[in-house]
Design a protein around this nucleic acid. Structure first.
Lengths: 324, 324
DNA sequence: GCGCGTCACTGGCGCGTGTCAGTATCTAAC
DNA sequence: GTTAGATACTGACACGCGCCAGTGACGCGC
């Protein structure tokens, strides 16, 4: 059935006329080992010709650590900005021979620590923070690098809220609202963004925004709108574009419109924001750069160096359209 | 640094007072091997107490095949319905001890076959069909199960288009349009849906829909709208909700509206569809069930049995709102 | 001639698991 | 008393790779 056994490094060694060790040295170009150009070429050619791919399992077993990086994704809808981030992260890690493995927390086959134990993960990443016991468990497993907080991502939360609020303040709004989703998975992110908005208000000498829930999956937006109007809120920052659309729908149900009755600004700049009626003002977030940066951090971290997690490289930009 | 070496099956054997082989037999409850209840309990208890987790790398190396299932995702934005599918698939596979590994094709670290070779994938799944050479390469690697066509998913494409077209026909439209995205990653899916719509038209004795591109990321929608109007198209099926929003925007730019000037129906029922202005008619797709079914197929396929790929278990339903 | 150092390799161990062939003990049949 | 078969295990090898320790060849200084 499987007549052609898979090629191993021994096959390469035989073809190249060297020992298996030499093959290993060449292929992993081991630092400190000097291999004459001629031998190196022979090995490389043989490997190429036989289409040799080292078996990850064997490599892991021997080395004690795999080249798998696990990214734990919380139970939330994966928007385009997140998937862009993941994509970029995976690509950049792949360039360093690391393979990204996204583990959906909602896919509750086994707890995170178990999955990492079986695959012998080299590093574990996640959005938000892990619980201390999870971190402890992972470290006990010998995972080289646990990143409890996605620093880049979380650091980007503040500026988003700030940008939203500053925009509305600049346009003359003196009393702001903040629209939150109901989804618990979003809570951490939402708090970050809200804090940013509150900071902008404080800097302008204004009271903190009135935070209310306006979930896209429910119909509580109209109620939120009427509460805001009672408190003479004239501008609302929404957690993201979908929440913004919910607010907009709430306004419409009350016979009102944006921006004349209430200004609304979203976040994420999802594709539909541009073509909505009216086109939604929002904040665009470039996570691609963050993904690359993140990968860099993992690589240096795995090399044993201490990494600086403070730098936030997420580019956010205001996109002014018709609802503000 | 790492004082507590990780527990191995030898540790369990020692604690339980049996041989390593017996531990293996108990833990994998090997069929055909009879283990007295008492011994079994001792082993299980020891394993529990030591928190023993077998190392996947060693298991794979010894067994020649891992418990990793690779799902290749094409270069397209991962919508909520797809991510729901993936989620459900991962959960169901996990119940059978299989781990899902989603590989983004756009994350072009290495070609699919390479990734599968290194992780020794047990099965490879994908949306759409793989190229023949990829399939051949994978089989040469000894991958037990290659599913070139995601039967469920593809089979669901037709009904979606059909449902859209039937709905519009039922409401009196005699000449239909079909709105396509520009994104090449969507092509296969789009063709499937379009075929479904065409079939519905044919069944009603109508000409095939006029297919034009109306991409959400570009501004070609207005042009498409005017072309449709020239051909006296009165109802448009959109590939998905985002494309539908693009068409709606095109209509608006031309000073027209849905449904009075042209009926529009989307697909996927994304959250924003419900709260858009006006709320978008669409087709909802339940891929959760499909995910579970899919997992089942993989498990039986891995057990060596022949699986029937023809059955499509995707539930689609019309969601009539205001744009049609 | 000897010692020393460098170069270019290689032999072989160990990683943790699955599994096959084998063994020791016991019961039952002839 | 011997054989046969079942029961309840165990010893040891194989899987493919990384890498340490070692080896032989060669050059060079004294």
């Amino acid at each position: 059935m499987t007549p052609a056994k898979r090629t191993t490094s021994a096959d390469v060694a035989r073809v190249a006329g060297v020992s298996r060790t030499t093959v290993s040295y060449v292929l992993n170009n081991r630092p400190g080992e000097v291999i004459p150009e001629d031998t190196r070429r022979r090995v490389l050619e043989a490997a190429e010709r036989l289409a040799y791919r080292p078996r990850a399992s064997a490599r892991t077993l021997a080395g004690g650590r795999s080249d798998i990086v696990v990214l734990s994704i919380p139970d939330l809808p994966i928007g385009p900005s997140i998937s862009r981030f993941v994509e970029e992260l995976a690509t950049s890690l792949a360039k360093h021979g690391l393979t990204l493995f996204t583990h959906l927390m909602s896919a509750h086959g086994r707890p995170l620590a178990d999955v990492c134990a079986t695959v012998e993960a080299a590093a574990v990443l996640g959005f938000g923070s892990f619980e201390p016991e999870t971190v402890a468990a992972l470290q006990r497993l010998g995972v080289a690098m646990v990143e409890p907080v996605d620093a880049d991502y979380n650091a980007s939360m503040g500026p988003i809220g700030r940008l939203q609020a500053e925009h509305l303040i600049e346009r003359g709004h003196r009393r702001l609202g903040y629209a939150l989703p109901a989804e618990p998975g979003f809570r951490q992110m939402a708090e970050g963004r809200l804090r940013g908005a509150a900071a902008a208000c404080a800097a302008a000498g204004l009271p903190a925004p009135v935070a209310l829930i306006a979930d896209p999956e429910a119909a509580d937006a109209e109620q939120a709108v009427s509460q805001w109007r009672e408190l003479s809120v004239t501008g609302v920052c929404a957690f993201n574009d979908e929440v913004a659309f919910a607010v907009l729908a709430g306004l419409r149900q009350a016979g009102l419109g944006a921006p004349q009755d209430m200004a609304v600004i979203g976040a994420d700049d999802i594709p539909t924001a541009r073509f909505a009626t009216p086109p939604l003002s929002t904040v665009s977030i470039d996570l691609a750069e963050a993904g690359r940066h993140r990968a860099e951090q993992v690589v240096t971290g795995l090399a044993g160096e201490r990494v600086d997690l403070s730098s936030a490289l997420v580019k956010v930009a205001l996109v002014h359209r018709a609802t503000s």
